[in-house]
């Protein structure tokens, strides 16, 4: 088993995420281009040209290449579980130089940049198990501008789902042009403070345009898209019809006394890439 080969694959995974947007996001941006006019259209035009150029020249589409964030489903029969974490860390260090990606990890006390995109608790990996012998990794490099617009609301249960909807719409109007709209908004409802934010971020893994499987929640997602877009904030906050490309909701059961709402905001550069590693060390990135 050559672990360097798997590391090569993880570097490719990061490269794919940083330089190519998923089709569902591009389709949605093209629809926004058709719908917009004036200044708003110039913004979507620049975004689409930028996406094209980044793919052709294999360079990161945005200079903020984000905090390296991975969601990993480990097949319980995968023979190299012990090496996985170190391989991800090594790949992030290599990707920093080889792609390159911007050194984005700063010590919060000393202010020093670690210069290789690693550091304490970073890269940020969420581990889960699944059956079989394959490993599935999703890379979701997360930019700072959109992350800064994250919100946690510990609402009073009495406000009900109407109160939850109002909170989400109000927060996205307050965020205005800061998170690089048109954005994808991920909302986690229920659980506790940390779980609601986690569910919000995990909901960003769902493709743009895909509704929640529960029809009632899907309807709320659609209502929120309409209400936020009616604000007129538009691309880059310069005015227009498209403030969000999508809103995704996930839920968890809540404590009777709590109604947590966690909002994770993703910029138009809704970067996602997937990798499968097989037990023999071979891999695919898509």
């Amino acid at each position: 088993m050559n672990f360097k080969d798997i590391e090569d694959g993880i570097v490719e995974l990061i490269r794919k995420a940083e330089t190519e947007l998923p089709k569902d996001v591009i389709e949605s941006l093209k629809k926004a281009y058709d719908a917009e006019e004036g200044v708003a259209k110039t913004q979507i035009d620049a975004i689409l040209k930028n996406i094209d150029l980044a793919k052709k020249t294999k360079r990161p589409m945005c200079q903020d290449t984000g905090i390296q964030t991975f969601f990993v489903d480990v097949g319980i029969d995968f023979p190299h579980i012990k090496q996985l974490k170190q391989m991800i860390i090594n790949a992030v260090k290599r990707a920093t130089k080889e792609i390159p990606i911007r050194p984005n990890t700063v010590d919060p006390f000393k202010g020093k940049n670690h210069r290789d995109n690693t550091g304490e608790n970073i890269p940020y990996v969420t581990w889960d198990f699944c059956s079989g012998s394959d490993v599935f990794i999703t890379a979701l490099p997360k930019g700072g501008g959109s992350e800064n617009m994250s919100k946690l609301g510990m609402l009073k249960p009495g406000v009900g789902i109407e109160g939850v909807k109002d909170f989400i719409v109000e927060e996205m109007i307050k965020a205005a042009g800061n998170p690089c709209p048109p954005t994808v908004v991920g909302v986690g409802i229920g659980g506790g403070a940390d779980l609601s934010l986690k569910l919000g971020k995990k909901s960003l893994l769902r493709p743009v345009g895909k509704r929640h499987k529960d029809k009632e929640i899907a309807k709320i997602e659609e209502e929120l898209i309409k209400r936020i877009n009616a604000s007129g904030i538009g691309p880059m906050g310069l005015g227009g019809k498209t403030t969000v490309l999508d809103v995704h909701i996930e839920k968890a059961h809540r404590h009777p006394a709590s109604l947590p709402v966690g909002i994770a905001v993703q910029c138009w550069a809704d970067r996602r890439a997937h990798m499968t590693i097989h037990s023999d060390g071979s891999w695919e990135v898509r």
């Binding site: 930028n50 150029l53 945005c62 690089c180």
Partner: peptide
């Protein structure tokens, strides 16, 4: 346009200097 990093880079003809790189890091 936020995030249009590749497009912006195309318009830069030259890098004419850098200051405080050691103290502050690249970004």
């Amino acid at each position: 346009t936020g995030g249009a990093g590749a497009l912006a880079a195309e318009k830069v003809e030259d890098v004419n200097g850098v200051y405080w790189l050691d103290e502050l890091g690249m970004p």
